[in-house]
Design a protein around this nucleic acid. Structure first.
Length: 429
RNA sequence: GUGGGUGUAGCUCAGCCGGUUAGAGCGCCAGGUUGUGGCCCUGGAGGUCGUGGGUUCAAGUCCCAUCACUCACCCCA
C-alpha cells in the first residue's frame, strides 16, 4: 500500500503555496492596521480546555476532536478551533492586567475529525481575530468590518453577512423553555436528530434543514421576541455601527452557531458558490468564555476564517492570486571553467537581490536554454569560452528575445537596474 | 457515523457484446548544427489496469469484498 496523506489533509505544493503567502500577508497587514497583534499558541492543548470552552454537548467536542493520551497520561487534543487557546493564553499571561482591550490574531492549522468534502478538511487553516475585554457593540462591529475589509482588499465584494442575536445565558434560558414548550407537543413530526436536540440543545433545531422540521420551525416563537432589553440594545447598536460603515447585512434568525460559548451577536459571512460549505467566516461574541475556562470575567468577540474556503472563493471569483515565479536570471555556462566562474558569481548576484540559478544537471547549452524557458527565467546569461576570454557575457531576455553583450563585471549592476530592484523591497503584491 | 459516484502511465483520459504484446494527448529525458529556448520532427523511460477473492478455456472488461478518492447528509471554517 502506497503511503498517502491522511484522509482530509493535503500538501500545499509550489505554485499553490504562493497564494497562501499572498493571503496570509494581507491578513497580517489588515489585522495589524486594525491594531491586532499576532499570537501563536500550541496546536494541542489539554482536552479539558475545549470541553469546558466549546461545550460538552457540541458536535465538535462529542465526535470531532483528535484526542490522544501522551506518555505522561495527559489527555491532549489537537485544537478544533482557535479561540479557546487564545483565551487560555490571555488568562495564563495575565493580559487582563494590561491596558484593555486585548486584540489578538492568529493564522494556523485547525483539526477536526469529520468526513471530508468540498471545502472541508480534517486539517484546515484559519485566520482568526479575538477582541478580549470590550463588552461594547462597537467591538462586534469592528471584527465584522475587519473581515469585510480583508475580503474587499482581496477583490471579493459579493459576500453576504448574516447575523443574529442569540442573547445572553439568562434570556436565552427563558427562550429555551418557550421553545421546548412549543416543540414538545410537535416532537412526533421532528426528525430523529431534532428529537434528540430537543432535550440536549433545543436551539439547534432552529437550523435543521429537514423539510418537516423547517415547517415547524417556521412558526416557532422567535428568539428576537424573548431577549432581554440589554441584549436587544446591544444588537441594535451593532447594526447601527454596520449601517454607519455602509455594510450590507442580513439578519437571519436561523443562525445558531455550533459552539456553546457564543452570546448575543453571532455572524457568518457566506459565499454561495462553494457547494455545500458556504461559510467562509464565522464568529460572534463570547462574554462568558474566559470565565468558563478559569479566568477573570472578561467579555470577548471574534471570528474564524477558513483559508482553504477563502482561496476557493477567490478562485471562483477570478480574483488576483500569484503563481509560481521563475528566477530573474539563469546562467547557461559552457564548459567547466565557465561553470566555475558562474557558480562563484552567483553569490554576489544574490547579495544584490537577484534571483539566479545555474545548471545543476550537466546539460548541453540547448538543453539549458530549454530548461531556463520552462522554469520561466526572465533573463539568461550565456557564458562560454569566448565570453570568458573577453571578460564579457551575452545576456538574453527570454520573453522578447532581445540580447546584449556586456562586461562580466557589470552584470550585477546591469541586472539590478533592468529588473528595477531595490534592496529588500517587500510588498504584498 | 449514513448514502451516491469514481479508481487504467506523473497529469487528463480511451479501451466496443470478456479474447492473446494495454493505448493516446500532455508532461519528463535525449537527439535533430559546430555554442542558443518557444514551433516542428525522431527516439526513450514510465503501468503488479487500487487491492484481495470468485466466475471463465480466457478478466482492465463480469460478480463479491475491501481500501482509497470524491460529492452529499450531520456539523462546521
Amino acid at each position: 500500500m502506497k503511503i498517502q496523506v491522511p484522509k482530509g489533509t493535503q500538501d500545499i505544493l509550489p505554485g499553490e503555496v504562493e497564494k497562501w503567502h499572498y493571503v496570509e500577508a494581507m491578513m497580517r497587514k489588515v489585522a495589524s492596521q486594525y491594531g491586532f497583534q499576532e499570537i501563536r499558541t500550541p496546536l494541542f492543548e489539554h482536552t479539558e480546555l475545549f470541553q469546558r470552552g466549546i461545550g460538552m454537548t457540541t458536535d465538535v467536542v462529542e465526535k470531532e476532536m483528535y484526542t490522544f493520551e501522551d506518555k505522561g497520561k495527559r489527555s491532549l487534543t489537537l485544537r478544533p478551533e482557535g479561540t479557546a487557546g487564545a483565551a487560555r493564553a490571555f488568562i495564563e499571561h495575565s493580559y487582563a492586567a494590561r491596558p484593555q482591550p486585548t486584540k489578538f490574531y492568529y493564522i494556523g492549522p485547525i483539526f477536526r475529525y469529520e468526513r471530508p468534502q468540498a471545502g472541508r478538511y480534517r486539517q484546515h487553516h484559519q485566520f482568526g481575530v479575538e477582541v478580549f475585554g470590550s463588552p461594547l457593540p462597537i467591538a462586534d462591529a469592528e471584527v465584522i468590518i475587519l473581515a469585510l475589509d480583508l475580503f474587499s482588499r482581496l477583490g471579493l465584494t459579493e459576500l453576504t453577512v448574516k447575523l443574529n442575536n442569540i442573547g445572553c445565558p439568562t434570556c436565552r434560558q427563558s427562550y429555551r423553555q418557550v421553545l421546548i414548550d412549543y416543540l414538545t407537543p410537535r416532537a412526533d413530526n421532528l426528525c430523529a436528530d431534532c428529537r434528540n436536540r430537543l432535550t440536549r440543545n433545543p436551539l439547534r433545531v432552529l437550523d435543521c434543514k429537514q423539510d418537516g422540521c423547517g415547517a415547524i420551525v417556521a412558526n416557532a416563537p422567535s428568539i428576537t421576541d424573548h431577549l432581554c432589553q440589554d441584549c436587544r440594545d446591544h444588537f441594535s447598536r451593532v447594526l447601527d455601527y454596520l449601517r454607519a460603515a455602509a455594510v450590507r447585512y442580513e439578519v437571519d434568525p436561523k443562525i445558531v452557531r455550533g459552539l456553546d460559548y457564543y452570546t448575543r451577536t453571532v455572524f457568518e459571512i457566506v459565499y454561495s458558490g462553494l457547494g455545500a460549505q458556504s461559510t467562509v467566516c464565522g464568529g460572534g461574541r463570547y462574554d462568558n468564555l474566559i470565565e468558563t475556562v478559569g479566568g477573570p470575567a472578561t467579555p470577548g468577540v471574534g471570528f474564524g476564517m477558513g483559508i482553504e474556503r477563502l482561496l476557493l472563493t477567490l478562485e471562483k471569483n477570478g480574483c488576483y492570486l500569484p503563481g509560481e515565479r521563475g528566477p530573474d536570471l539563469y546562467i547557461a555556462a559552457i564548459g567547466d571553467a565557465a561553470l566555475e566562474q558562474a557558480f562563484a558569481a552567483m553569490y554576489g548576484l544574490r547579495q544584490a537581490g537577484v534571483h539566479v540559478v545555474t545548471d545543476l544537471m550537466g546539460r548541453s547549452l540547448k538543453a539549458q536554454l530549454k530548461y531556463a524557458d520552462k522554469i520561466g527565467a526572465r533573463y539568461v546569461a550565456v557564458l562560454g569560452e569566448a565570453e570568458l576570454a573577453a571578460g564579457q557575457v551575452q545576456l538574453k531576455q527570454m520573453q522578447g528575445g532581445e540580447d546584449w553583450v556586456i562586461a562580466w563585471s557589470d552584470l550585477a549592476d546591469w541586472l539590478t537596474e533592468k529588473l528595477g530592484l531595490e534592496a529588500n523591497k517587500e510588498e504584498v503584491r
